Every structure is written in C-alpha cells, then in structure tokens.
Computed example of a mutant assay.
Amino acid sequence: MDDPFEAFYRQHIGPVTRFVARRVDDPHLAADLTADVFVAVIESAHTYRPDRGSRTAWLYGVAHHVVAAEHRRARRETTATRRVAGRRLLDPADVARIEERIDAEASARRVYRALSAIPDGTRRLLELVAVDGLPVADAAAALGMSPIAARVRLHRARHRLRELLTDDIPLGGTTHEYA
C-alpha cells in the first residue's frame, strides 16, 4: 500500500462512517455523505495546517462541514416543499385570470411605486389623511408635527405624486428633496 491517501482512507473510513451515521438516519445518505467527506478531503487537502491540529481533527472538521451543509440543504428543501404542498398547479384559465388581475392592478402598482419616492414621514402623513380619512390636524398630532407643517408636507407630497404619475417621469428613483 504505497498510496498515502489510501492508507489515510482505510484508517479513517470506519470512524467517519460512524460520525456521519450518528447524525443522519438514512443509510444511503450516510454512505453518500461519508464519500462526500473524503472527496472534500481530497479537494481541500492543501488547506490542512499541522500547526492547527492533527489530521484526524481536521478530518472531523471537514466531516462536520459536509454534514452541516447537508442539513442546511435538507432544511431548504423541506421549506420549499412546505411552500408548495397542497397547492395545485395552475391551469391555463387560472393563468389568464391572474394575468387579467395583474393588468387591472397596474395603476395601483404605479401609485405604490410613486408613493415609495415620498419620504417615510410624509408618506405616513399622506396615508393617514388620504387612506385613513383623518383630518390634517389629527394626522399631524399622531405624527408629532404641527398642523401647518403637515399642510405644507401634504401640499408638496401631492404635487410630487402628480409629477411622478405623469408618463414622462420614471418611477425608478427615490428623491427625497423635502422632509
């Protein structure tokens, strides 16, 4: 047996298999992960530093990373499966209805994009007045500002929204020219 890796493999295959088997309950997965550990050892052998610990400690570190990566992958897969579980696939009629809804809501999306260009405090004021129906004085009090400042902000916000909602001004940027 002249190959140093083969000797290393034969010496450590049993302990690594036991290490993996204690962490997963599927024998096929345990075999795959054990093989993955030794593939990772080959690929990262150049990173082994004797001054940081023994080869065995390094090997167990590699094994730990391989098993941890598998657990992360399995969690992502489980999460993705849960998201789609119980959902049926869309048929062409469903897709057509959704496309119609998306088209119908285009103007609302445009308004929301325009609102995102308004500074947060002013946007909250505008929502309290325009959406929630509060009088300007009450909205100003709720946000801790004077009614006069609220009126000025509302005037500027409405003017800015009108500008943003015209076709010649793109809604991509967020310019906060007033507070």
Score class of each variant (00 low, 15 high):
residue 71 H to D: 07
residue 96 A to F: 03
residue 104 A to P: 09
residue 143 L to A: 04
residue 21 A to C: 08
residue 176 H to L: 15
residue 60 Y to F: 15
residue 99 E to P: 04
residue 179 A to C: 12
residue 178 Y to F: 15
residue 15 P to W: 00
residue 165 L to G: 01
residue 20 V to R: 03
residue 112 Y to G: 13
residue 25 D to Y: 10
residue 50 P to M: 04
residue 128 L to Y: 09
residue 152 V to T: 14
residue 139 A to N: 01
residue 61 G to T: 13
residue 130 A to Y: 09
residue 1 M to I: 05
residue 57 A to L: 13
residue 132 D to S: 10
residue 132 D to T: 03
residue 57 A to C: 07
residue 138 D to A: 14
residue 142 A to D: 11
residue 83 R to I: 08
residue 162 R to L: 06
residue 35 A to C: 09
residue 129 V to I: 01
residue 20 V to P: 07
residue 6 E to C: 05
residue 15 P to F: 00
residue 161 L to H: 02
residue 54 S to T: 12
residue 142 A to H: 11
residue 32 D to R: 05
residue 122 T to L: 00
residue 65 H to K: 14
residue 39 V to N: 06
residue 80 A to Y: 06
residue 109 R to H: 09
residue 136 V to N: 03
residue 21 A to F: 02
residue 138 D to M: 05
residue 7 A to W: 07
residue 1 M to S: 09
residue 139 A to S: 00
residue 120 D to S: 12
residue 179 A to V: 14
residue 158 R to S: 07
residue 163 E to H: 08
residue 84 V to E: 10
residue 4 P to A: 12
residue 160 R to T: 08
residue 36 D to E: 13
residue 127 E to T: 07
residue 79 T to C: 07
residue 113 R to C: 07
residue 26 D to E: 06
residue 98 I to M: 13
residue 168 D to I: 00
residue 89 L to V: 12
residue 113 R to D: 14
residue 72 R to Q: 10
residue 33 L to T: 00
residue 172 G to F: 03
residue 17 T to G: 13
residue 174 T to E: 15
residue 164 L to Q: 00
residue 108 A to Y: 07
residue 35 A to V: 10
residue 113 R to S: 11
residue 136 V to K: 01
residue 18 R to V: 13
residue 40 A to Q: 05
residue 127 E to I: 06
residue 65 H to T: 15
residue 157 A to I: 01
residue 106 A to S: 11
residue 162 R to H: 12
residue 122 T to K: 01
residue 89 L to I: 09
residue 178 Y to S: 03
residue 28 H to G: 13
residue 21 A to R: 13
residue 144 G to K: 00
residue 141 A to D: 13
residue 19 F to W: 08
residue 109 R to S: 09
residue 108 A to L: 13
residue 170 P to F: 02
residue 31 A to Q: 14
residue 106 A to L: 10
residue 72 R to V: 11
residue 107 S to C: 10
residue 179 A to P: 06
residue 58 W to L: 00
residue 160 R to K: 11
residue 28 H to Y: 12
residue 62 V to N: 05
residue 108 A to W: 09
residue 58 W to Y: 15
residue 74 A to K: 09
residue 79 T to A: 12
residue 62 V to F: 05
residue 116 S to Y: 08
residue 34 T to K: 05
residue 15 P to R: 10
residue 122 T to S: 15
residue 156 R to M: 05
residue 73 R to Y: 08
residue 140 A to Y: 01
residue 114 A to R: 02
residue 114 A to K: 00
residue 176 H to P: 05
residue 14 G to F: 02
residue 167 D to P: 12
residue 74 A to M: 12
residue 49 R to L: 08
residue 176 H to S: 15
residue 72 R to N: 10
residue 95 V to N: 06
residue 165 L to T: 01
residue 140 A to D: 00
residue 26 D to Y: 01
residue 128 L to A: 11
residue 93 A to Q: 11
residue 63 A to I: 04
residue 155 H to E: 08
residue 157 A to T: 01
residue 156 R to T: 05
residue 45 A to N: 04
residue 127 E to L: 06
